[in-house]
Design a protein around this nucleic acid. Structure first.
Length: 473
RNA sequence: AGGGGCGUAGCUCAGUGGUAGAGCAGCGGCCUUUUAAGCCGAAGGUCGUGGGUUCGAUCCCCACCGCCCCUACCA
């Protein structure tokens, strides 16, 4: 047989040696003997280092410990490693180094490799799921002249020839719905969004989002579809709907559904008096009064209070109450539906209660994993809500109304439901990873000083080529 | 942004107000069935950076840089 790979272990014994190479995630032991390969090849072999990439040919046999091993007959150095591998037993443990030099992390730490193999599998399964159901995968612009589709501070860039500023997209939503107007009844896109916000265990400035839209559907139907999707995904990727995540066992086979108001009532803290009545939550000034009661309790406990501006709407108070009271408790998969319309600018109102949007979010392990709704397809209502946003101002909000999107709606968007699923967080859940950096190959870190850029390449006798080298790809 | 922690050899980590320590890797030697192979030897360092205190600082103090955690921000 012929096989090639990187030498990751060497155990020389004078005129013979054992070692392992690793290729494509698999390891194979090899055995080199002076009397088999000859003097010249054995000399070459003795010059090899851990990390070198070699090709060998020879016969397979089993050692006395019954390990499958290649007895090397011919040996060829394919690539010389000029820098040493990390320590063989502990691997690369320094988290900063693991992210900055992910290639070493992947060579040395099998867990890291496993996470990204599983991530690839998850994305494959998502594509299969939607392809099977007649969804068309599309690519929409990453650079947007007008901010839209979400509320977030954007990255701004500039196109020279057109002399125009562009935003890296914060969401593909408005383009995907234009496609539904154009007759693509089922579309999906898996791609990056960019948000110029804080970085922590569950936030990175660029993250991967699956968004899908289905004409002639609605929010409740998407909740059903999402259950089916996640159940299948967990079974195929983890072999079971029950998945270990830290101290929890998450069951992707069971989903609770609660309206946002129900969730506030259900998780109302015991020490804060009687849970608010449904009528009070629905009343115009109710959420504000409930928030004041909650704040009294929070101050007595020394925990965070709910802070809303003086002009905050009932819906904004409701959203804040939900986040403070209920969100941290949502460990098992839970759909929260019936969002206040004020915090759902792109979602359709409920016919029986125009203060509520036909919107839901899925929470798992306290994280927001999905956000979906029946799409607002009334151009007049949409334009009114856009104008309110623009008037309100702020960095997270478009500075102008996307007239073309209103025009597209005016041509008629069929009743449509759409949803976004945060892929990175989903991968976290399915790989028992507790930081988003662990599931993104090259997470953003501050630019590192590279005083050794010249030193690292000096050994190869080549010109220094640091990360700022314009010729490097 | 605030609070806390960390930064010592290529890697994983000890350690001390008086010229710096181990294991692994690398280098030289011995070793033809090993599994973190073993044995012998030599080498390896601006102790993150810059100030300060001190006769003397890797150690104590201050500032800065980077990473991690918590909190805040992120509907």
């Amino acid at each position: 047989m012929r096989v090639a790979g990187r030498i990751v272990a060497l155990r020389p014994h004078g005129k013979a040696a054992f070692g392992h190479f690793s290729g494509d995630g698999a390891k194979l032991q090899f055995y080199v003997r002076l009397d088999v390969v000859g003097e010249r090849a054995f000399k070459l072999f003795q010059l090899l280092d851990l990390g070198d990439i070699v090709g060998v040919s020879g016969h397979l046999f089993r050692t006395k410990t019954n390990e499958l091993t290649v007895k090397v007959e011919h040996l060829q150095l394919l690539t010389k490693a000029l820098l040493p591998l990390p320590e063989k037993w502990h691997g690369l443990a320094d988290t900063e180094m693991r992210y900055r030099r992910r290639y070493l992390d992947l060579i040395g730490n099998e867990d890291a490799r496993e996470i990204f193999m599983r991530r690839a599998q998850i994305i494959r399964e998502l594509r299969r799921f939607f392809d099977e159901r007649g969804y068309v995968e599309v690519e929409t612009p990453m650079m947007h002249p007008i901010l839209g589709g979400a509320t977030a501070r954007p990255f701004v860039t500039h196109h020279n020839t057109f002399d125009m500023n562009l935003y890296l997209r914060i969401a593909p939503e408005l383009y995907l719905k234009r496609l539904v107007v154009g007759g693509f009844d089922r579309v999906y896109e898996i791609n990056r969004n960019f948000r110029n916000e804080g970085i922590d265990a569950v936030h990175q400035p660029e993250f991967t989002m699956l968004e899908f839209y289905q004409a002639y559907s609605d929010g409740p139907a998407l909740m059903d579809l999402t259950e089916q999707l996640l159940r299948e995904l967990a079974e195929r990727v983890c072999g079971s709907t029950k998945v270990t995540f830290g101290e929890h066992e998450i069951d992707f086979g069971r989903y609770e559904r609660l309206s946002m108001r129900e969730a506030i009532r259900k998780f109302w803290p015991a020490g804060a008096g009687a849970a608010p009545a449904s009528e009070e939550l629905a009343a115009q000034d109710g959420p504000r009064r409930i928030a004041e009661r909650y704040n009294q309790f929070a101050r007595s406990m020394g925990t965070d209070t709910i802070e809303c501006g003086p002009s905050a709407s009932a819906g904004e108070f409701t959203g804040e109450l939900f986040e403070a009271v209920a969100e941290p408790h949502l460990i098992q998969p839970t759909f929260i539906h019936d969002f206040p319309v004020e915090i759902s600018p792109l979602a359709k109102r409920r016919e029986d209660d125009p203060s509520l949007a036909e919107r839901f979010e899925l929470f798992i392990a306290g994280m927001e994993v999905a956000n979906g709704f029946s799409e607002l397809n009334d151009p007049d209502d949409q334009e009114r809500r856009f104008r309110e946003q623009v008037a309100k101002g702020g960095q997270e909000v478009p500075k102008e109304v996307d007239i073309d999107y209103i025009r597209a709606l005016s041509h008629g968007l069929p009743p449509t439901a759409g949803e976004g699923i945060g892929i990175d967080r989903l991968v976290m859940l399915l790989t028992n990873s507790h930081a988003i950096r662990e599931v993104i190959l090259f997470p953003l870190l501050r630019a590192a000083e590279e005083p050794h850029a010249a030193a690292a390449s000096a050994q190869s006798n080549s010109a220094p080529a640091g990360p700022s080298d314009p010729n490097s790809k």
